[in-house]
């Protein structure tokens, strides 16, 4: 009994160390953002600012169109998440509910796009978007991300988990495809759909690279993109301000995560299950 509890302690120490490494940077970011410039350099390691100040936040609000950035990010992430959910539901439903030739092949082809690296799509998509005249607009960011292979896969998994008799009972009632989808299937998989929507939202909120390629006007920047303005390659001195923007950028995803972490972790866990 005693030996086993000691052995347990051993592993707890390792894991607590890991938790410390993972959480300390976040905490450090938060505390730095409330420190005055002097304090940042004089008591860098102090976990709690001696005199918490809002200066950094006020400075950013005053000198940068921060609200505009937040709105831009929200707009792009919201539309992408909604669209990914809708297109994924429709496609997954077709795969679950209908029989048609080459079904498996099409499904695998769609799923494989998950593994096509950004390097491959970078140049051609940029050219395509410029031909469509949507460069430097939010639509340029949104357009290539209207559908998602992982979304199709996960929603199909969720739909497959519905007991078959429920679907068959609907069929016997002469329920058409649309009734079946909206009144039987969707209410049953609502939790996974919501969780997946949140995950999509977080991912596109955090997206840096594609907005970087598409958006040139500073007024159209998203938050992660705006972050770049607060650092220089040599390591600028405005750390408090940079950290304040970083906090604002991370807050929505972190809050979403904290409020429904069980859901979100479950959704992520499923994404590793290869069917």
């Amino acid at each position: 009994m005693k030996i086993s509890s000691i052995r347990g302690w051993h592993w707890h120490v390792v894991l607590c160390g890991a938790v410390l490494i993972q959480l300390w940077p976040l905490f450090f970011m938060l505390s730095t953002s409330f420190k005055s410039m002097d304090e940042i350099f004089q008591s860098t390691l102090n976990p709690i600012p001696a005199v918490p100040v809002m200066n950094n936040y006020l400075y950013v609000l005053k000198n940068f169109p921060l609200v505009q950035y937040i709105f831009n990010t929200f707009f792009i992430a919201g539309i992408i998440a909604a669209s990914k959910i809708i297109t994924s539901i429709l496609a997954a439903f077709a795969f679950v509910y209908y029989e048609f030739s080459h079904k498996e092949k099409l499904f695998n082809a769609l799923l494989l796009t998950f593994f096509i690296p950004i390097t491959v799509v970078m140049v051609p998509n940029y050219l395509l978007l410029s031909r469509l005249g949507v460069l430097n607009t939010p639509w340029g960011v949104i357009l290539p991300q209207l559908a998602d292979a992982m979304g199709i896969f996960l929603i199909r998994q969720a739909m497959r988990a519905i007991p078959r008799p429920l679907i068959e009972a609907g069929k016997l009632e002469n329920a058409g495809a649309w009734v079946m989808l909206t009144r039987i299937i969707l209410p049953l998989i609502k939790p996974s759909v919501i969780a997946m929507g949140i995950v999509f939202f977080i991912n596109s909120w955090n997206d840096y690279f594609w907005p970087l390629l598409v958006l040139q006007d500073k007024s159209r920047y998203t938050l992660p993109l705006a972050l770049q303005m607060f650092i220089s390659a040599e390591g600028g001195s405005e750390w408090g301000i940079a950290m304040a923007v970083a906090v604002l950028t991370s807050l929505p995803p972190l809050l979403l995560y904290l409020s429904c972490q069980r859901f979100i972790i479950h959704t992520f866990m499923q994404s590793g299950v290869k069917g």
Binding site: P163, P165, E168, L172, N174
Partner: peptide, 15 residues
């Protein structure tokens, strides 16, 4: 098709 057969069915797990 099933819906056009005018059938009522009770499933094992009730569905």
């Amino acid at each position: 098709e099933p819906g056009a057969r005018n059938i009522a069915m009770v499933f094992q797990n009730y569905a």
